[in-house]
């Protein structure tokens, strides 16, 4: 798979179909880490790699002005998560579909950390992956597809039930007060480094509400009220949009379980509007669409 990818990228760069390709390369062999890799010179393609340690969602670079202004057409390696982000960005008119060239690849799920593993299994797969619908990214978004066969059986960890949903099944039964205390304690840890926002492909506001200081909506200091406000505002802002790539949770230096919040919000949108973000480019996003038969129970809680 890697070899096919390299050949394709080499070809695209040589023919000047794309000016820049964003993929992955190894970052630190000792720690088994991989990082986003920007490539403009076809001679560098040998550094391109792709495997289950390639965690980053690369779609986030598509909305960065520094890159948009410099490169006319950007090639992007897309696993399912990245493809869903691209679809959402198209839906929200943040990128021109023609300005990107998408190479979609099969993803068997990613590992939960950087330890050396032989093969993806239910013990080492990231929590966000089970239940994934885009192991092969939607063909409608891709310019090229490099597919790998995925075993469609119950033993395949991506087909397992999502551990986050299982967690919520029990947690949802608790009284609201207890639930609030749990999340409040988690938010208290926040140090406001805003890595969750910066790494999110859908947090593309030029000036975030957290950065506005005339007026200030919530405190810049990481005290309890400001922390909860920030995390709740972000959760609301992603409701019905979050594509579940889990990058926010992965990079959080204090490990706030952000995916628990995001998944629950997505689940609610699914229940009320039968909509999931980033699966269909032509679908109108749930929260900007009004229908006469929208479920009123949403407002009753």
């Amino acid at each position: 798979m890697e070899q096919i990818l390299r050949e394709k990228v080499k070809e695209l760069l040589k023919q000047k179909t794309i000016d820049l390709f964003i993929g992955y390369s190894i970052s630190d062999p000792d720690k088994n880490t991989y990082k986003p890799f920007f490539i403009t010179d076809p001679r560098q393609v040998d550094k391109l790699t792709y495997n289950s340690y390639c965690f980053n969602n690369l779609a986030l670079y598509l909305t960065k002005d520094e890159l948009k202004n410099r490169y006319k057409k950007i090639g992007l390696l897309c696993k399912g998560c990245d493809a869903r982000a691209v679809i959402t960005l198209c839906q929200e008119n943040q990128i021109e579909r023609d300005s990107v060239y998408i190479i979609a690849v099969t993803c068997n799920g990613v590992y939960r950390d950087n330890q050396h593993y032989e093969k993806i299994s239910k013990d080492n797969i990231a929590d966000k992956c089970p239940g994934c619908k885009v192991t092969n990214p939607p063909a409608s978004i891709a310019d090229e597809i490099i597919e790998d066969a995925i075993k469609d059986d119950k033993d395949n960890p991506v087909n397992m039930q999502s551990p986050i949903s299982v967690w919520w099944e029990n947690f949802d039964k608790l009284p609201n007060e207890t639930k609030w205390l749990y999340f409040k304690a988690e938010f208290d840890k926040c140090i406001k480094c805003y890595a969750c926002r910066q790494v999110c492909p859908l947090c593309y506001c030029t000036i975030c509400i957290a950065d506005q200081n005339l007026p200030r909506f919530f405190s810049k200091s990481s005290d309890a009220s400001g922390n909860a406000a920030w995390n709740i505002v972000r959760a609301y802002h992603l409701t019905g949009r979050c594509i579940g790539c889990g990058e926010c949770e992965r990079v959080c230096p204090v490990r706030i379980p952000l995916m628990k919040i995001n998944k629950r919000m997505s689940q609610a949108v699914k229940e009320f509007f039968d909509y999931e973000g980033g699966l269909d480019k032509e679908a109108p996003p749930a929260l900007v669409t009004f229908k006469n038969d929208d479920d009123e129970n949403l407002f009753h809680g």
């Binding site: 480094c193 790494v199 810049k220």
Partner: peptide, 25 residues
């Protein structure tokens, strides 16, 4: 560093970074 996302992790974990802002709560 074109890959840089402008988050604050590097400076927050740094043992020497000391920039601060003064605000009112």
């Amino acid at each position: 560093a074109l890959e840089c996302l402008s988050c604050g992790i590097c400076t927050f974990v740094c043992p020497t970074c000391h920039c601060f802002d003064i605000i009112e709560d």
